[in-house]
Structures are given as C-alpha cells and as structure tokens.
Design a protein around this nucleic acid. Structure first.
Lengths: 141, 141
DNA sequence: GCCTCATTATTCGTATACAAATGAATATTG
DNA sequence: CAATATTCATTTGTATACGAATAATGAGGC
C-alpha cells in the first residue's frame, strides 16, 4: 500500500498559483504603466528613491535582483534618462547610482500608480482578506 | 492638501512581495529537482499527464503559457525525450503532444517531488494558515 | 609589504515570458 | 461556394532571472 489514491493536481501546487497571480499582477501593471516602465524597473527606481545613492550591486540586493539582472535593469533605466551613474572616488570598483532629476520628478506619480496597481491586484479580496493575505504572503518571501 | 504624507514603501507592494515568494519557491524547487526540470517544464508535464494528448497551444492555455513560451518548453521536453509529438491527421495545423513512455514513467516521482516543494514553500505557515493563504491566493490567480 | 580573501561589475549561457507579425490550414457566414 | 474570420505553430524582439566565470580592486592578517 504505497500508492496514493488522491489525484495529483497542478492547480493545487503553490508554485503554479503563485505564477498565475504574478501574471495577473503583471497584466494589471502593464495596463497602468504602459510600456514606460516594467515592474522590475519600477522596483529599482522606487528603491533608489528610498535609500538614495548606492552601488549597483547594493541596489540589486535591496530589490532582490541578481547582479546580472540588476545590470540590465540599470542599463535600461539609464538609457531612459531616469537613473544617473558616477564613479565612486573612494572605491574604483564601484559606480554610484542615483535618480536623475527627471527620475526623481517622476517618483510621486510612480508612487500613485504603484499603489493603484496594488489595489487593482488585491481587488478580488475584501479589506480584511487583504490584511491576512499580505501578512501570510510576507512570511513566504 | 493633495499630498500624501505616508512614506511609500516598495516592501508593501503586492507585486514585489509576490516576486519574493516566487523566488523562494523557485529556489526550493531547484533544491528538489536539480537541473533536471524547471518549474515550467514540470507544470507542462504534470498537465499533460492530467489531460492526456493535446495540441501545443492547448497545453499552453492549460498551463497559462504564451504560444511562444510553450513552444520553447515543449522543444526542451522533447529534446529530453519526455514528451512525444505526432501530427494530427484530422488537422494539418496541429501537432499532438503526449508524454513519452519515459515521461509517463516519471510522473509518480514528479508528483511526489512536486508535493514536497509545495510543502517546503508553505513551511513558514501552520496548517490553518496554509488553507487560508491558498484560498486567497487562488482568488488572485 | 605580501598573500589571501572578499567585493564589484561584467559577460556568457540558458530559460521563462509576452507582444506582434507571419503563413498555413480550418471554420464560419452570407 | 466564396469571402471572411479564426486557429495553429513559428519567428522576432525585448525584458527579466539566475548560475558560473572573470578581471580589477579593496580589505585583513601576518
């Protein structure tokens, strides 16, 4: 009797449902932000606004991005003129990143849109459920 | 008084926390499956085991993958000899996919490992919390 | 100072992920 | 049945995402 009679269902796997929720969020994000900024680029800018000037790898750590991933993200943000780079005089390895004036000027609008996307995403839940969900989700982060 | 005094926090955005949880899940998945199979490849195989023979686009829809994404996934599963393809005699556009004998033989083991990854991922939650979390997460999928 | 180790940024390779466009085949509709 | 619309699979381009490797630089121990 080593068999398991319960049918296996992909729909019950947390990884799969997480992917579905992430996809829906990405779709809602795109609807609000258009192709101006991706969720990842948004995260990098928001964090840079929070912590101020820092190195590229540090920004990657603060946004849970691999060194290879954050490089591409920063490259694209610099190409858009939203992030500025200067070399660190105290450490020749580092380049110090900061929001450009244009990037900083966009922050308030980004915050408003970001909050709207979070509300859109949580819309299927009532207020009490949102609290519970975010609390539990945070434990899995 | 149009300003918002509350500080904006990336850590409170559901999209960001979803990404963190997905990252942790991917890491746990990798620990169990090694580089044999990715979560996406696993999902495609599990679903193909559930619904049986179907077209490539149909498998994509059943696993929430874009036509371009499912193509790459199926290509790699075929290269590993886990999925077989034949042309549909009734519709020249379609190619019918099915698990290969080797792929089908792996299913039981995949199910066991898949369940373990789900348990690993939900480990920070107690049994009652898991029920609640999955129920709420499903509403966002 | 010198050796070792850690950190920074970059690069390469692989794998999702999706929008958009294409050609072939099928379905629908007037 | 002929014009239109839809579906299937493929391809291209862009953007994460991460493991692994590398060169340059910095830090610590002796």
């Amino acid at each position: 009797m080593t068999g398991d009679d319960r049918p296996y269902r992909l729909d019950d796997q947390v990884g799969y449902i997480l992917r579905l929720a992430s996809q829906r969020h990405a779709s809602l994000f795109l609807a609000r932000f258009g192709s101006d900024l991706t969720p990842t680029q948004f995260a990098a800018m928001a964090r840079l606004g929070e912590i101020g000037q820092c190195s590229q790898n540090e920004l990657g750590r603060q946004t849970a991005m691999d060194v290879a991933t954050i490089k591409g993200v920063v490259d694209r943000l610099r190409a858009k003129g939203l992030v500025s780079q200067m070399s660190d005089p105290a450490d020749k390895r580092r380049s110090l990143l900061s929001l450009s004036p244009r990037g900083a000027a966009m922050l308030a609008d980004l915050h408003a849109k970001g909050n709207t996307v979070t509300e859109d995403t949580l819309d299927p839940l009532d207020v009490a459920e949102r609290e519970v969900f975010l609390s539990l989700l945070r434990k899995l982060g």
